[in-house]
């Protein structure tokens, strides 16, 4: 597990098996995914712990992440399987905690789970019952 942006939050997992292109497919005002071919279509990433494989597309997408945060529609934290510079810099700009996990860890995180994420803790990610 690798910490890219530090932080401590609790929240409900919103999990996608598909990469996210922040530029153009996430509504900056609502945090809603507008790509109808995406498994999170019409779902809002707002206040979730967003778990997805990685970001794709233009690096300008980092500004989109910053915008979503400015509009109070951003996820509480993001967890990815692969690091990419768009999501990394976007989360850094917006101060959204971001960690990279292994494939096994990624598989073990379930949609709808209530988890706590604390990058300073020994167990960075833990389940809350």
């Amino acid at each position: 597990m690798k910490v890219l942006v530090q932080g401590k939050v609790r929240g409900i997992v919103l999990k996608s098996e598909m990469p996210i292109n922040f530029l153009g497919t996430v509504d900056k005002k609502t945090g809603m995914i507008s790509d109808k071919n995406h498994d999170l279509f019409k779902k809002s990433i707002r206040n979730s712990i967003l778990v997805f494989p990685s970001g794709v597309g233009s690096s300008v997408g980092a500004y989109t992440i910053y915008s979503i945060k400015s509009n109070n529609s951003a996820p509480l934290a993001m967890i990815c399987k692969k690091s990419d510079l768009t999501v990394a810099t976007g989360c850094a700009l917006a101060n959204i905690p971001l960690v990279i996990v292994s494939s096994e860890e990624f598989t073990s995180i379930q949609n709808g789970q209530n988890i706590s994420l604390d990058t300073k803790d020994q167990n960075i990610i833990s389940c809350i019952n």
Binding site: K2, L4, D84, A88, T89, A92
Partner: peptide, 8 residues
């Protein structure tokens, strides 16, 4: 930004 880029 530097840390996130550096760690990646």
């Amino acid at each position: 930004i530097l840390v996130a880029t550096g760690e990646s």
